[in-house]
Write a protein that binds this DNA or RNA. Structure first.
Length: 820
DNA sequence: TCCTGAAAGCTTTTT
DNA sequence: GCTTTCAGGA
């Protein structure tokens, strides 16, 4: 037996050692997927003598790729004695990366086949939407009626489904519009010498499909392909695998690992049914099931099983572990998101005080990035070290995007999106009118806007030489007023100088280039205006600079034809949120459920376990059961991140867009057997309690209040933090319900300090329902109105507490509510 | 052309 | 509640 497979269980061993032919591994959470993948690669290299450069492994993030490479080096050095450094060198030529980075690499090499200039760049989401918007303006389409974001999402989906503009067919007017934008958008990308994320996949598919020689080249290069997180591949990615593994060479050495229950990227075209496709397309495959879990306690697994078993269309699995029962999963209801954060912080402090854990052992997860704010505030206040992943992503900040736009224009002068971003940043007298005129002129001349600028600066004669082709007569008559013209020429002079510096390699590192450009552009001076915000932004630029400093002339990672700048721009375009995760940081990690995929922590909190948050309101509204199943899978992913302890937290009220709303507990809580939980009574009593608290404050002499009292002393609030207001209910009563103009109310600030807030007067007192009204609903029965408010579109939204049913939000125009 | 304050829109989730 | 866009005046 090989050393590499020692200490593996039987199915894991089989997965590692079945080197030939297609293999499908269905692996539950915590079953050692990564372990199997790394050992398998080590095994192929050491035991089977397969050359590392014949292996390509696809992971979900670049970070996972880097870690996997290190682990393989470590395994080899432990078993065969060589130092890790030597092993790392020995692994050179081994390809590990994401689908996107792999495709970028192929397309970079095969650039002549795809009609792009070699210096093409990758547009991020914001650039993509900006280009869609520009295209729509050209086509005279109403942005209000057809939001560029929605159009872009539709285009992106088409691309992920491998529908080219030529193949695109519309079935509605919206789609007809989207199709027109799609065609024009693709043309613009080509003109800008840029690709979006979806192009990386789509163009790779087309390249491999249409060029037999190229396909054979990569089939010979990578006869062994491994894929992690296979359930989250989309059609384009599946097709890339098929193209690399099948005709004509027919290596079919595909090794894919996945878990249908953890498929959470449907929105970006991922389809767990690729697992079925794999079974169909590779009938000779070997299938291996990994069901033993090495991560969590049995109780946590039971919770996970209870949840996921509610989903339709899945292969039933039975997760089991030898880790022992563990402690029950804690469910807690907080008053609002401030208290929710206070509870989380309290628990973390409590557990830290036992000295059994360090801050790095905790993860707090949530459905949407916006939920992180309250948590951050609580952690700052209590001086708990935390690290926030995602949210306002570093590379999406204005100053970072500006700086990168400068570099992108030097590298790829055709990039009009970046040029328009920086042409008047800092303000240099080139306004919207001038930019529009420049765009029109460039189009008339058939050149990029940057080249149009250069014509202005160098003169048409010189540019005809440079371009190697004649220009229309319009090149001699620039349509600018004197002031605009001189501003443009001044900018063009700078640009010319920078482009020359880049081409002549007059810089040592990208940081060096960045310095030259940003200082001369006046960007730094403009940014550092003495304000605190300016210094913050400057600090961010420093951070970018330190990344850029690693990209130097002659760095080893450069492939032929690459420059430090081109590599920098490419890698920066493909960073992912999870790349920021640093286990050694010794801090509590705050991250979305999506980003948490593939990670594990001793203690995990899932906050916002409420209808409308988890499951998200979009999934409720769509009515598509597939959407609900995906929300459940997302919850399942969250639950199974936990090794020892799991907390599920929800709020009674939550502020969304500045409005405080009553929330009902997530349906997913109801799906968990009560005996696995602590900190709460059964689901029905939980709903009743929330009904009671919602209605009882106004009639203190009613029997309902007695019920409330019992409920509170009965332990429902027993776990609540000391910072909670002594009586939470009066607070909410005045928040929205009393529409007296300019009324002041007190809300519990973090740490128990009351905070004064002005609430504007509610508009219009002519609502059909008001607080305390008793109402009858055809299916929910009799309930009490908690609040009623005018919606943006003039309708009336009534929040009603129905005993035994819960809190419902209803539109007066639709709900058929009767006042009693 | 640029700055300011008001209004609108926004939050799924990510490469 | 926060950020981006818009309108109006200097």
């Amino acid at each position: 037996m090989s050393n590499i497979t020692a200490n593996l269980n039987e199915p894991q061993k089989r997965a590692v050692e079945t080197v030939k032919g297609p293999v499908l591994v269905l692996a539950g959470p915590g079953s050692g997927k990564t372990r199997v993948l790394t050992r398998r690669i080590a095994y192929m290299i050491e035991e089977k003598g397969i050359a590392p450069w014949n292996i390509a492994a696809v992971t979900f993030t670049n970070k996972a790729a880097g870690e996997m490479r290190e682990r393989i080096a470590l395994i080899l050095s432990e078993i065969y004695g060589a130092p890790p450094v030597g092993q790392t060198q020995r692994l050179s030529g081994l390809t590990i990366g994401t689908f996107h980075s792999l495709c970028a690499r192929i397309l970079r090499v095969e650039t002549t086949h795809i009609g792009f200039q070699p210096n093409w760049i990758i547009y991020d989401s914001a650039d993509q939407v900006a280009l869609v918007r520009a295209v729509m303006r050209d086509l005279n389409l109403d942005e209000k009626r057809y939001p560029p974001k929605a159009i872009h999402a539709h285009i992106s989906k088409s691309k992920n489904d491998l529908v080219t503009p030529e193949e695109y067919r519309s079935t509605s007017y919206f789609e007809e519009i989207a199709g027109r934008v799609y065609r024009s958008y693709q043309d613009s990308l080509l003109a800008n010498n840029a690709m979006d994320f979806d192009d990386l996949l789509l163009r790779t598919v087309l390249l491999l499909r249409n060029n037999l020689d190229v396909r054979v080249k990569y089939q010979r290069k990578w006869p062994y392909l491994l894929v992690d997180e296979f359930q989250d591949t989309n059609s384009a990615q599946y097709e890339i695998l098929r193209l690399l593994a099948c005709e004509p060479t027919n290596n079919r050495n595909l090794f894919v690992v996945g878990d249908e229950d953890q498929s959470i990227y449907r929105f970006r075209g991922a389809d767990y049914r690729n697992v079925q496709l794999f079974r169909r397309d590779y009938p000779e495959h070997v299938e291996i099931l990994l069901e033993q879990n090495y991560r969590s306690t049995q109780i946590i697994l039971d919770v996970a099983n209870a949840l996921i078993s509610q989903n339709r269309n899945r292969t039933p699995k039975r997760l089991h572990t030898d880790n022992g029962q563990g402690v029950p999963v804690m469910v807690y209801e907080a008053y609002n998101e401030v208290e929710e954060a206070a509870f989380v912080a309290d628990e973390i402090e409590k557990l830290l005080a036992t000295k059994a854990f360090t801050p790095g052992d905790f993860a707090v997860t949530y459905r949407t990035n916006a939920q992180s704010r309250a948590l951050e505030e609580a952690f700052v206040m209590r001086q708990i070290k935390y690290k926030l992943i995602g949210a306002t992503r570093f590379y999406e900040r204005k100053e970072i995007k500006d700086a990168l736009a400068y570099l992108r224009v030097l590298h790829n002068p055709a990039d009009s999106v970046s040029l328009e971003r920086i042409i008047n940043e800092p303000p240099r007298g080139i306004g919207a009118k001038t930019v529009e005129a420049l765009r029109a002129w460039a189009e008339e001349l058939g050149v990029s806007q940057t080249d149009a600028l250069r014509i202005l600066h160098l003169g048409p004669v010189r540019m005809v030489e440079e371009l190697g082709r004649p220009l229309p007569n319009a090149a001699h008559s620039a349509p600018f007023a004197a002031r605009a013209r001189s501003a443009l020429v001044e900018f063009a002079t700078l640009l010319e100088e920078w482009i020359a510096a880049e081409r002549a390699v007059r810089y040592d590192s990208v940081a060096d280039l960045l310095d030259q450009v940003l200082v001369k552009a006046g960007y730094i001076d403009d940014l550092r205006d003495g304000s605190e915000e300016g210094e913050d932004r400057f600090a961010n630029l420093q951070e970018l600079r330190s990344v850029a400093a690693q990209y130097t002339q002659g760095m080893p990672a450069l492939e032929p034809g690459q420059t430090p700048l081109s590599l920098f721009l490419e890698e920066v375009s493909l960073v992912s949120d999870s790349d920021q995760i640093d286990e050694s940081a010794g801090a509590v990690t705050l991250l979305t459920l999506h980003t948490a995929k593939g990670l594990e922590y001793p203690i995990v909190f899932i906050v916002g376990m409420e209808e409308g948050i988890l499951p998200h309101s979009r999934s409720l509204e769509s009515g598509d059961p597939e959407d609900m199943d995906e929300e459940r899978r997302l919850t399942y992913v969250g639950v199974t991140r936990a090794k020892k302890r799991l907390y599920l937290v929800h709020c009674f009220r939550r502020s969304v867009w500045g409005d405080s709303n009553v929330q009902s507990p997530s349906r997913f809580l109801d799906e968990i057997p009560t005996e696995l939980l602590s900190g709460m009574v059964d689901a029905r009593r939980r709903r009743e309690a929330s009904y009671q608290r919602a209605t009882s404050w106004e009639n203190s002499d009613s029997s309902r209040n007695a019920a409330l009292g019992r409920s509170q002393t009965g332990g429902y609030w027993s776990g609540r933090s000391k910072s909670a207001p002594p009586a939470a209910t009066p607070v909410q009563s005045s928040a929205k319900a009393a529409p007296a103009s300019g009324s002041t109310y007190w809300s519990p600030g973090a740490g128990g300090k009351a905070q004064k807030t002005q609430k504007p007067a509610a508009s219009g007192g002519d609502l059909a329902f008001k607080r305390r009204d008793s109402v009858q609903h055809p299916s929910f029965g009799v309930g009490t109105v908690i609040e009623s408010e005018r919606t943006r579109d003039g309708d009336e939204q009534v929040t009603v507490a129905f005993p035994g049913v819960g809190i419902k939000k209803l539109l007066a125009s639709l709900a058929n509510l009767k006042k009693l």
